[in-house]
């Protein structure tokens, strides 16, 4: 007897990604560059987040042709984004055989109240979070992997740092807290009690947690690993840089050797210009993608 679509294989797939870099790509050519650089997976999109910002309007699931093209081009796993709460986009991606779905705030939400019930699907999901309440709600819905949100498409690491520190500080709080205080914390965080119990028993989150939203340099990627991320997502940071091949390779190596500073020095030399950044504090509130998600 075999069982598919169970937590062990959904969460296990993310465990195999640990220490790795997942890169946004918009076509087969970029996917091959990512794979050759050592990416552990690619996220197939119609536009990278910085271009989604520029284009404005409604951002939706990509044309399935793009996912097909990328799936045919590489042997590493292929992920794709569906809008928050868009049951049909997610089912379409599942039926195509995409390896992981990102229910993502980078796209325009389809539902402003409810996320997908991800435990209903056979395909695993990754979701964004800014704090433990959000992380635990997504786990409660069946997410098999998390990523801290950061602020996508900005090339500015500040929000990614804020969110990862916040989640990890709250995990430490749960782990060290007496059990009789957990229910009130669950109420205050808006977190499912059972998920907090699991975190306390394990001493950590029950799923892998990557960092995302603002990684633009090898040092940025290493910083997120230093702060306790299990790996990194790089969106616009690779293919909006001056030399995507060099940036991709350097970010992969820096993520693995994040405490080897001599190596990061070498990796950072003569890379060319990183993507142009945006100061998040000057950004109008309604343009902040991290505010999407409930």
């Amino acid at each position: 007897m075999i069982q598919t679509g169970v937590d062990a294989v959904k969460r296990g797939m993310a465990q195999m990604q640990k220490g790795g870099v997942i890169m946004d790509v918009i076509n087969a050519e970029q996917a091959k560059i990512a794979e050759a650089a050592g990416a552990t997976a690619v996220m197939a999109l119609e536009r990278v987040p910085s271009d989604i910002r520029k284009a404005g309007g409604v951002a939706r699931m990509a044309d399935p042709r793009i996912m097909e093209e990328v799936m045919n081009a590489v042997s590493i796993p292929v992920m794709a984004k569906a809008r928050i709460g868009h049951i049909v986009e997610a089912r379409v991606l599942e039926s195509m055989g995409v390896d992981y779905i990102d229910e993502s705030e980078v796209l325009t939400p389809a539902d402003e109240e409810y996320h997908l019930l991800k435990s209903d699907f056979s395909v695993p999901f990754v979701c964004g979070c800014r704090d433990l309440g959000e992380a635990a709600r997504r786990i409660g819905e069946g997410a098999a992997m998390l990523r801290t949100k950061g602020e996508p498409g900005t090339g500015n690491i500040v929000e990614a740092v804020r969110h990862l520190r916040q989640v990890n500080a709250q995990v430490r709080q749960v782990v060290s807290m007496p059990k009789d205080e957990l229910m009130t914390l669950a109420k205050n965080l808006g977190a499912p009690f059972e998920v907090l119990l699991q975190i306390q028993a394990l001493g950590r989150l029950p799923v892998v947690n990557f960092a995302a939203g603002g990684v633009a340099t090898p040092a940025d990627a290493a910083l997120m690993m230093e702060l306790g991320a299990d790996g990194v997502f790089v969106g616009s940071g690779i293919f909006k840089s001056e030399n995507p091949e060099k940036f991709a390779k350097a970010i992969v190596q820096a993520t693995t050797h994040y405490q080897d500073y001599a190596r990061i020095t070498e990796l950072s030399k003569e890379l060319g210009a990183p993507m142009k950044g945006i100061d998040v504090t000057s950004m109008p509130f309604e343009q902040r993608m991290q505010e999407r998600g409930w």
Binding site: M1, I2, M13
Partner: peptide, 24 residues
């Protein structure tokens, strides 16, 4: 197959039952 086909099953390893997770 792809991730959607990943599975868990019980294997017989030299007479011992071993639970095995197959991922891609």
């Amino acid at each position: 197959g792809r991730q959607i086909d990943s599975f868990i099953t019980d294997l017989d390893v030299q007479g011992t039952k071993v639970s095995a997770v197959f991922i891609r």
